[in-house]
Simulated scan of single mutants.
Amino acid sequence: MSSNTILWITTFIMLGGGLLILVTGKRRTPTESLHTLLHGIVPIIAACSYLAMATGQGLVLLPTTDAVAAGAATPTRVFYFARYIDWTFTTPLLLVSLGLTAMRHVRKDYGAITGAVLADVMMIVTAFAFGASLQGWTKWTWFLVSCVAFLGVYYVIWKSQMEANAAERDDVRATYRRNAAILSVVWLVYPVILAVAPDGLGLVGDAASVLVIAILDTVAKVVYGYMAVVSDTKATDRDLAETPAGTTPLRRAA
C-alpha cells in the first residue's frame, strides 16, 4: 500500500470518527458538552492535516542527511510538516480533556494543565525542527530537546494531576488512570517511529512510517476519544443521579 493511499484512507477515518463522536456524545451538562466538543474536533483537525498531506500540500521534499553530508541534492525524503501542525492543536486539546477528567469534581489545578500544554507544544515544535533539520548534529539535538519536553508532559500527567485525582471518587480515579495510561503508551511510540523513519535514521521506509503514525493517530484521536466520551457519559450519569434536587452538576464540576 502506498503512502498516499494510507493518507487518503486515514483522512476519511478521522473525519468519520470525529463526526461519530460529535453525534453520539451527549451535552447534558457544560462539562459533558466540553468533553464531547474537544474529542470530536480533534479527529476533524487531523482529517484536515491528512487531506493536506494526501493532496501534496502538507509535505515537502528535503535532502536526506547522507545527501547533505555528501554535498549532493539527492536522494530526497518526504517531510510531512502538516502532521506537526495537527499535533500542535490536537495534543493540547487531549491534554486539557485529560486534566479536566483528573479533576472532575475537585478544585482544578490550572497551573498543571497549562504546564502540560506548554511542555507539549514545546515537544511538538522541537520535533518539527528535528524533522526539518538537514544536518545530523542539529537534528539529534532537537530530538533530545523534544524528548526532555516529553518527560515534562509525563511528569504532569503522572505526578501533578495524579495527586489531584487522588481526591476524586472511585470511578473518576479509574477513568483517569486508564486514559492516562492509554495516551502515555501510544504517545511513547511516536518518538521511536520518528527516530527510525526517513526523517531520522532512515531504517524504516516512508510507507511503513506513514502507516504506523496513521495507526497511532487513529488510536489516540478516534478510539481513545470515543472511549473518553463514553466514560464521561457514565460519570455524568452518576453526577446527575447523585445531584440533590435544586442544584446542578455544573456547580460541582466548576
Results as ranks from 00 to 15, higher is better:
1 M>T: 05
4 N>Q: 11
4 N>E: 12
7 L>P: 04
20 L>E: 09
23 V>Q: 11
24 T>D: 01
26 K>I: 04
27 R>A: 15
29 T>Q: 01
30 P>S: 03
30 P>N: 03
31 T>Y: 15
33 S>R: 12
35 H>R: 08
38 L>T: 00
43 P>Y: 06
46 A>T: 13
46 A>S: 13
50 Y>L: 07
52 A>I: 03
58 G>L: 02
60 V>E: 09
63 P>A: 14
63 P>C: 08
65 T>C: 01
70 A>N: 13
73 A>G: 11
75 P>V: 07
75 P>K: 12
76 T>R: 03
78 V>Q: 10
79 F>M: 02
84 Y>F: 15
86 D>P: 06
86 D>T: 02
88 T>I: 11
89 F>T: 06
91 T>P: 00
93 L>P: 02
95 L>W: 05
95 L>R: 06
97 S>C: 02
99 G>C: 10
100 L>Y: 07
101 T>W: 04
102 A>D: 10
102 A>K: 11
106 V>F: 03
107 R>D: 10
110 Y>A: 02
111 G>R: 09
119 A>C: 15
123 M>W: 07
124 I>R: 06
125 V>I: 14
126 T>R: 04
128 F>K: 04
134 L>S: 15
136 G>L: 12
140 W>H: 08
148 V>L: 15
151 L>W: 15
153 V>Q: 05
154 Y>R: 12
155 Y>Q: 10
157 I>V: 11
162 M>R: 14
165 N>F: 09
167 A>Q: 11
168 E>D: 03
168 E>V: 06
170 D>F: 03
171 D>G: 09
172 V>K: 07
174 A>W: 06
177 R>F: 00
182 I>D: 13
187 W>A: 14
188 L>P: 00
189 V>N: 03
193 I>T: 13
194 L>D: 12
196 V>E: 01
197 A>D: 14
197 A>Y: 00
197 A>T: 03
197 A>M: 05
198 P>Q: 09
200 G>F: 02
200 G>C: 12
200 G>M: 10
201 L>G: 08
203 L>R: 06
208 A>W: 14
209 S>G: 12
211 L>R: 02
219 V>H: 01
220 A>T: 10
225 G>I: 13
228 A>V: 05
233 T>N: 11
234 K>L: 13
234 K>W: 10
237 D>C: 09
239 D>E: 15
250 L>S: 10
251 R>A: 11
